[in-house]
Computed example of a mutant assay.
Amino acid sequence: MITRPHRRSALKVLHWSMVPLLVWFTLVTPDDVLPFGQAAFQFHSILALIFVTFCLLWTADYLRRGLASRPGPKLKGWARHAHQWLHKALIWGLFGVAITGFLLGLTSTTLLKAGGFLPIAPPLGLKEANDIIGQIHIYEFYLLALIAVIHATFHIWRHLRLRDNALRIMAPKALHRYL
């Protein structure tokens, strides 16, 4: 019999699977991989498809069930508001990155394929719109990365300052002894 993992367990896997992808796309752009050939660009594209799939899964989970985490009892005032704001900003930021990626494909002059096989959208050939959306996509992604850093810093602060075990909530059990 196959059982579904608990929501929190599934979100932990999703969360920690997205971290290296977020780091990768923060440090490596398509222009960086192009000099290494088509295979490197293809690899980058497949990673992007995986990342976007994760973004959409997380957004769908949020829309269906709301936030998985609640602020702990030790969070008061600004920290309580920041907790909810940071999580929602991350989820909507992930969704925004996926949408602007789709819009890049839609406004492109050629058919773009995610992972080299999945058509993103029918190309409308809107060069000016494509340039604008491309800039939005880039700035939006780096803003998302900044929010992720603030999110991580917030949870480290909670764990160290409030001693509320905030890091244990999302860390795999194998790492709990180090926290």
Results as ranks from 00 to 15, higher is better:
Trp16Ile: 02
Thr100Ser: 07
Phe54Tyr: 10
Leu143Thr: 15
His151Asp: 09
Arg80Met: 05
Trp24Leu: 13
Gly101Ser: 10
Tyr62Asn: 07
Lys173Arg: 10
Phe43Trp: 15
Lys76Arg: 14
Asn165Glu: 13
Ala89Asp: 02
Ile91His: 01
Gly134Ile: 06
Leu14Cys: 05
Val23Gly: 01
Ala79His: 11
Thr3His: 07
His81Trp: 11
Phe51Thr: 09
Val149Pro: 11
Leu47Arg: 03
Leu146Pro: 03
Leu124Glu: 01
Ile99Val: 15
Val33Ile: 07
Leu167Phe: 00
Leu144Val: 03
Pro20Ser: 08
Ile156Cys: 02
His159Asn: 14
Trp92Asn: 02
His151Tyr: 09
Ala48Met: 14
Pro30Cys: 15
Leu118Ser: 00
Leu27Arg: 05
Val52Glu: 15
Ile133Tyr: 09
Met1Glu: 09
Arg7Gln: 10
Phe36Ser: 10
Arg70Ala: 08
Pro20Asn: 06
Ile150Ser: 06
Tyr142Thr: 12
Ile91Tyr: 04
Ile99Gln: 07
Trp16Val: 02
Ala98Tyr: 09
Arg80Pro: 00
Leu126Tyr: 02
Thr29Cys: 05
Ile120Gly: 01
Leu103Cys: 06
Pro20Tyr: 01
Ile91Val: 14
Thr110Pro: 00
Arg65Phe: 13
Ile2Trp: 08
Thr59Leu: 15
Gln135Glu: 15
Ala39Ile: 11
Trp78Asp: 04
Thr3Ala: 09
Val28Leu: 12
Gln42Thr: 15
Arg158Gln: 14
Val52Asp: 14
Thr109Cys: 04
His15Pro: 03
Asp32Pro: 03
Pro172Lys: 11
Ile2Gly: 01
Asp61Gln: 15
Thr59Gly: 15
Pro5Val: 04
Pro20Leu: 08
Leu75Trp: 01
Leu75Gln: 06
Leu63Asn: 08
Leu111Cys: 05
Ala89Phe: 02
Arg4Glu: 12
Arg80Cys: 01
Thr3Gln: 10
Pro172Val: 07
Ala121Asn: 03
Glu128Leu: 14
His15Gly: 04
Leu167Ser: 00
Thr3Asp: 07
Gly101Pro: 12
Pro20Glu: 01
Gly77Ile: 01
Lys74Gln: 11
Ile132Leu: 08
Ala39Ser: 13
Ser69Trp: 09
Gly96Tyr: 03
Pro73Val: 03
Ala145Arg: 07
Tyr62Gly: 07
His83Ala: 04
Leu21Cys: 06
His15Trp: 03
Leu21Phe: 06
Phe154Lys: 05
Gly125Gln: 00
Ala174Gly: 08
Phe36Trp: 14
Ser69Asn: 08
Ala39Met: 11
Asp61Ile: 14
Phe95Tyr: 12
Phe25Pro: 13
Trp78Glu: 04
His155Gly: 04
Gly66Leu: 10
His137Asp: 06
Ala10Leu: 14
Ala39Gln: 15
Val19Glu: 03
Trp58Pro: 13
Leu144His: 10
Arg8Ala: 13
Tyr142Leu: 12
Arg163Gln: 09
Leu94Ile: 06
Leu118Ile: 02
Val52Ser: 13
Arg64Asn: 07
His6Ala: 14
Gly72Val: 05
Phe43Cys: 14
Leu21Pro: 11
Gly115Arg: 01
Phe95Gln: 09
Pro122Arg: 03
Trp24Pro: 00
Thr53Ala: 07
Ile136Arg: 12
Ala98Asp: 08
Ala145Pro: 10
Asp32Leu: 10
Lys74Thr: 12
Ile133Lys: 07
Leu112His: 09
Pro73Asn: 03
Leu144Tyr: 05
Ala166Glu: 01
His155Met: 05
Arg4Val: 13
Leu63Val: 13
Cys55Val: 08
